[in-house]
Computed example of a mutant assay.
Amino acid sequence: MNPGNPVNPLAAVAPEVLVALTAAAAGLGVVVTVLGVRGRVPGPSGRPGRRGSAGLGRQALFGLGAGLLTLVLTRWVVAGIGIGLLVAGWQRLLGGNAEENRGIARLDALANWTESLRDTIAGAIGLEQAIPATAGTSAPALRPALNLLVDRLRIREPLPEALQRFADDVDDPSADVVVAALVLNARLRGPGLRDVLTALATSTREELDVRRRIEASRRSIRRSVQIVLLIVLGVMGLLAVFNRDYVAPYSTFSGQLALVLVAALMVAGLTWLRRLARVETHERFLLGAGGAR
């Protein structure tokens, strides 16, 4: 090296590495944009929640950083893009089932409210008075819908119509069963509502227990998949960084195509597992009952 002619650090970087960095950044940018458009978490009013958008932005940034770091260490374009997408979509592919957790929380809140409504009615007060009395002590998963129900009762909306709109707000098949019993009682004013609510609360508790056991077993499966995936990626990463001669064939064009195939099979397997973990819920039989808003 000629000391009078200093070397530009950027010139020491291979051109293919610079091209790879540019390609990875562009690819991750496209994916982050798609995730930002499609993966926004709706809030209570149907609009995207700020917390969900902030969490998505953090995951996208982590994915971008992980992809660029992988690209610099391995000089594999496919590895950089794949790791970046995996980190950005970790919650979607391998994280907890947020939708099922919300369903379990809503079912638990419904069971608690049914029991509270039954106990309040035991005090010889009407259903119109019992509902506002139980709304303030309800669980957060059910409280917004109950507050709307109380507001409708305050403006003298008929109880059956208000209950049907409450079922639309909750949007859960189990809530339809409870609401149907309340609507029948509001129209017929017959006895036995306490016994019906007791049976409904017991049935809801049994369904809640089953869904919790299923989610616990799926959580252990997800943890096992995460461990296996991290071990595989960790071994591949160590070989790519500390034993480049062993994995040198993957640096070629055909080797990168082979990595694309491996990554596609891995994503297909994770997507398949995610689809198997999806809970199939029954259709609501009161759907559209409150359509005359």
Rank of each mutant, 00 (worst) to 15 (best):
E283Y: 07
E206P: 00
I221C: 00
R102N: 03
A88H: 02
L56E: 03
T281M: 09
A162K: 10
V210G: 04
P42Q: 14
L85F: 06
S203W: 01
A105P: 01
L163E: 12
G29L: 05
S116A: 15
V7L: 14
L184N: 12
G57K: 11
N185V: 07
I221E: 14
P42C: 12
L257T: 05
E280Q: 15
A122M: 10
G82W: 08
L261V: 11
E115T: 11
L270G: 11
P191W: 10
V72D: 02
S217W: 00
L182N: 11
G126C: 01
R222H: 03
L110M: 08
T22G: 15
P44C: 04
R50Y: 03
T74W: 04
G80P: 07
R118D: 00
E157W: 00
Q256C: 01
E16F: 06
V30N: 02
V150E: 09
S251W: 07
A66D: 01
G136L: 10
L239P: 03
R152N: 05
G234I: 05
N147W: 06
I221M: 10
A14N: 00
L208N: 09
R293Q: 11
G291V: 13
V225D: 02
V210R: 13
A268F: 11
L56C: 02
R154D: 08
L197N: 07
R50F: 05
R284T: 04
R293T: 07
E280H: 07
F166G: 02
R154V: 04
V13Y: 00
R40H: 06
T70F: 10
W76S: 13
G290E: 04
P158T: 02
Y246A: 15
A122K: 08
R51L: 12
A145C: 08
R75T: 06
Y246T: 14
A98E: 14
T120H: 09
L287W: 15
L117S: 02
G39V: 03
R278A: 07
P15Q: 14
P160E: 07
G82Q: 01
Q226P: 03
L229M: 10
R47M: 04
L85G: 08
A292W: 11
I83Q: 12
R223M: 14
V17F: 00
L142P: 08
A109K: 11
R222V: 08
G46M: 04
L233T: 13
L257P: 02
G237D: 01
T204K: 08
T198Q: 14
A186C: 09
V179A: 12
V77G: 09
P15K: 06
G291H: 10
V241A: 11
V150T: 15
G52N: 10
R205N: 12
R38G: 00
D195N: 06
S220D: 13
L208P: 00
S220A: 13
E157C: 02
L71Y: 01
L273R: 12
R152M: 05
R102K: 13
L233S: 11
I81L: 15
R218V: 06
R50M: 06
V232P: 03
V72Q: 03
A135F: 02
A60Y: 07
Q129V: 03
L197P: 08
N185Y: 04
T202I: 04
R189E: 15
A141Y: 10
R219P: 00
A240L: 07
T252K: 10
V247D: 06
T204V: 03
A24C: 15
A26T: 08
L261Q: 10
V34R: 06
W76K: 01
L117E: 05
L73R: 10
A88V: 01
